[in-house]
Computed example of a mutant assay.
Amino acid sequence: MFSILFLCTANAARSQLAEALVNQCYGQHFTAYSAGTQAKAIDPRTLQTLSKQGLSCQGLYSKSIQQLEQTLQQTEANKVSFDFVITLCDSAKQECASLPTGAAILHWNLADPAAQPGMDLFTKTFADLKQRLAEFVKYNRPSGSALNIAPIDVFKQFSDNTRLQILLLIEDEQRLSVNQLSHALAESQPKISRHLALLRECQLLSTTRQAQQVFYHLNPELPDWVAQTLSTTRLANPGYINQPLARIRQQVASKSISH
């Protein structure tokens, strides 16, 4: 279970909406809190927006960071800390120096709906938060199976043309052997094997054996962000592996004819 602190200036609208959204939609993975750098009363339109969206307003109240920490310290023996701190306005962003250490900090600069009349900006802010939080949860929810791979290790592999082509070919074809990759990329088998060893070492690839042949495939425990990066790269660059794919198709066709 991860904890998130949503921080804005008044803790009257944006951070309250975010707290309610997380606790009621993603409560199995996260516990959300909200606070303000200059806390004021909750805007009644915040409660109207939540009610309209079918979410409860129970337990919501406006508070400063200091008040929140004092409340939490009553139930926690150690110093209060959060796994994530998400600031929702530029003013709150400036307070990052005083935030709990060790937290991963994100900044989403959203217009203050309380500063404008009517409900339109509240509705827009809620929709924006809902979309951002769905994406955030997708990549940051606790997982007992996904690997913890450092971004630098992933992008080191992506920076080499041969290894990137190998990854995209396997992403496209599901599984390939050294022989198939060597033929597709017009490279020697020892060279392809060295690249595959590096990709296995950083856990991007796994292997399965069929009879005497070893096939390489994407590690089924890849974090979502890595798999999504590969998929997006493939979709956004459809011609990048055209030639290697054509060679694989030719190889498969010639084997079918010979049999």
Rank of each mutant, 00 (worst) to 15 (best):
M1Y: 07
L5M: 12
L7K: 07
T9F: 00
L17D: 01
Q24T: 05
H29N: 14
A32I: 03
S34D: 07
A35I: 01
A41G: 12
T49C: 15
K52S: 05
K52P: 00
G54M: 01
S56Y: 04
Q58S: 11
Y61T: 04
I65D: 01
Q66G: 07
Q66N: 12
L72V: 02
T75M: 05
K79C: 06
K79D: 12
V85D: 06
T87W: 03
C89H: 09
D90L: 09
S91Q: 11
E95S: 15
C96Q: 12
A97D: 09
P113K: 02
P113A: 02
A114I: 01
P117K: 10
D120I: 03
T123P: 00
T123F: 00
F126S: 10
D128C: 04
K130W: 04
L133I: 13
V137K: 04
V137L: 01
K138T: 12
Y139R: 08
N140F: 08
G144E: 09
A150C: 03
I152V: 12
K156H: 13
Q157S: 15
F158H: 10
T162S: 08
I166Q: 09
I166F: 04
L167A: 08
L168N: 07
Q174W: 09
R175E: 14
L176T: 02
N179A: 14
S182G: 15
A184E: 07
A186R: 12
A186K: 15
Q189Y: 05
K191D: 01
L196Q: 13
Q203G: 02
Q203F: 05
T208D: 10
Q212R: 14
V214K: 12
F215E: 08
N219M: 02
W225K: 08
Q228E: 13
S231N: 13
R234P: 11
Q243R: 14
P244W: 04
R247K: 15
S254H: 03
H259C: 11
H259G: 14
